[in-house]
Nucleic acid binder design. Structure first.
Lengths: 347, 347
DNA sequence: TGTTAGCACTCACTAATCACGAGTGCTAAA
DNA sequence: TTTAGCACTCGTGATTAGTGAGTGCTAACA
């Protein structure tokens, strides 16, 4: 598909205009723009051709033109000039990383919030997978005779905790011994391998030292059953209400259902990891509820081969250029910020 | 205000009808009901009187009647027969408490979900204030040379953790000693008094044993700065979209803003604690965005003088009777379930 | 005296009609 | 190749008319 320069210009202006106004753009209004020195008739002819190529559409016979999905795709692939962010935007972003926040979850959550606030779209951030994190320390804190809290701290500072029932017949000394064994055996073990190692290596060892070791193993193995899905952090879930394309409450509901369930979104965002910026436009999402939205995902690597990803969900009529710049900047900052957590400068 | 039996009957039926259909109810359709043996003309006369008393309203001159806020208030105060829950409902509720869940947050979150799912309204649950919880154990887990995780476990099994920067010049032995001191001095201290005690009692003691104790105190005091607001747990935030009164996206947005910010809702729900079921209808909420919704709150005591509360937010046209029954049942169950956590049967 | 039948009246809602205007496609002239 | 001109399309908004569910009032009835 070869377009003349004039066609490129016209296509670009139409899409830019539509992104701003959400209104079909007509030949006459275009011809009035100062960077368009052609008459409306000429533009009409070009529009006709662009429509034949499938880049534009009409909402009805005599309406102005609207970009088609293919049009957006072309725009994104060929027309997008990586527009630099405004100073104001940059400084706002820096503010997330300015005060030294000390928890990963915090940084991630705040990134999501800023991202949605700056774009007015919905943002989704997935922190680095912590299944690969290694156990730093295991603690058991008895609460009373029947129950105790098990705590696992990873090398990234992530804390998992779970209450469990103390198997009968276990005395405080047993627990103390158990903690010692667990720390000896499990320190340095990645979370994913925890259950496995528990049953294979630790079990044997506990057998020798602890009465009722099987009950204890059982109780503990459950604790280590860490949820498979990492948590998605959302920002501006409600922002879609501000988009005219979702004035229809039923459409909004359908969209919200997909967002809230996370089932569909999670793999999409997860699989981005490591492959730069990805853009899914409208029906490319393969989901009825997402047919009028675009999903832009970016991933950010952190030290140690891990990576997280962030995404923006907005109407297909989205400020692609701005969103991409934002994602680029923020993903780099996140890389830097989170890498400090993953930097394993053990003693 | 004295109503005849017939007026009571008619008011009741009108409100019940409107709650179901969300449509103004007219005299003719009422007269057709089998438990209403009066002609439409008679009903019209009664309606006229009820309207004069301010219990009913018309949406326009020749429309059917709709309950006024005063009408709902009367209905709630005098007409509501505490209708027993259906078996199906009861068994669904039991299912929350059936599998022995071991974390407070879990129970609370699931209650909120079930509540919203069963009512199709939005539910809000506030767990018992844990500011009064007592420290059970303090742990410090060094991650590397610069940072460490501080963990505080309370007697209810609540775990707070925070990363902090290790003041320079502090060696592992210092930390170990510090943990011992903190546990000695702070065990049994309610969370609210933590900071105070830290500065007053613990500081003196640390001074004697730890180098750079002032930096350490500073770092640690920050950690103990536990958020003032307990977390609200929501269920079915989106359910309001299903209510015809919120077909208007602007109204929906206003409502969602109030819900999401939590500022307004928190004190309302918090202050319920200990005073049974409270019902706020429409403008009684004193908030423009909440003028078309009712908020029903209930509190549930747990052992040790604590209490939590749960709330349902729905349109003023709400199934009051059902919601109240549900809240009653669930608050009792929550009382029971959470009391086991607060039961301080220490060794 | 309370209840009901009858009737005129109101008003939201829907569908139909119309004028307007922003847009198109086509043709012919520049 | 570009543009001016023109007939045509169609969404939008205003207006109108018909419909029906509802009311209030009056007069008759039990």
């Amino acid at each position: 598909m070869m377009l003349t320069d004039r066609q490129l210009l016209i296509l670009q202006v139409i899409i830019d205009d539509f992104i701003r106004s959400a209104q079909p753009v007509g030949s006459r209004s275009l011809s009035k723009k100062e960077n368009i020195p052609f008459s409306s008739a000429t533009i009409r002819n070009e529009m006709y051709d662009l429509e034949e190529m499938g880049l534009l559409e009409k909402t009805h016979t005599s309406s102005g033109r609207v970009p088609s999905e293919k049009g957006y795709r072309f725009y994104v692939d060929h027309l997008l000039s990586p527009q630099a962010l405004k100073k104001k935007d940059m400084s706002q972003i820096q503010s997330i990383f300015a005060d030294r926040i000390l928890e990963i979850e915090n940084v991630v959550q705040r990134s999501a919030e800023i991202l949605s606030q700056m774009t007015n779209y919905t943002s989704i951030v997935l922190g680095p997978d912590h299944h690969e994190n290694k156990v730093k320390s295991v603690q058991i804190i008895p609460l009373n005779l029947e129950s105790a809290i098990a705590i696992i701290v990873t090398d990234t500072g992530h804390v998992e905790n779970k209450r469990f029932t103390i198997p009968p017949g276990l005395n405080p000394e047993d627990i103390e011994r158990m903690v010692k064994i667990l720390n000896d055996k499990l320190t340095g073990t990645p979370l994913v391998e925890l259950q496995d190692k528990m049953y294979k290596e630790v079990a044997l060892f506990l057998k020798r030292h602890i009465a009722n070791y099987d009950l204890m193993i059982e109780a503990f193995a459950q604790i280590m059953n860490i949820p498979v899905h990492d948590k998605l952090f959302f920002g501006g879930k409600m922002n879609m209400m501000n988009q005219p394309e979702f004035n229809d409450i039923d459409k909004l509901r359908m969209l919200m259902d997909v967002i809230d369930s996370e089932d569909y979104l999670y793999p999409l965002i997860k699989e981005t990891s490591g492959s730069g910026i990805q853009i899914r436009i409208g029906k490319e999402n393969n989901n009825e509820a997402l047919k009028d939205v675009s999903l832009i995902t970016a991933s950010f690597p952190v030290i140690g081969g891990q990576s997280g990803s962030l995404a923006i969900l907005g109407p297909t009529r989205m400020e692609y250029s701005r969103v991409i710049s934002l994602l680029n900047v923020i993903s780099m900052d996140l890389s830097k910020a989170l890498s400090t957590f993953y930097d394993r400068d053990d003693k």
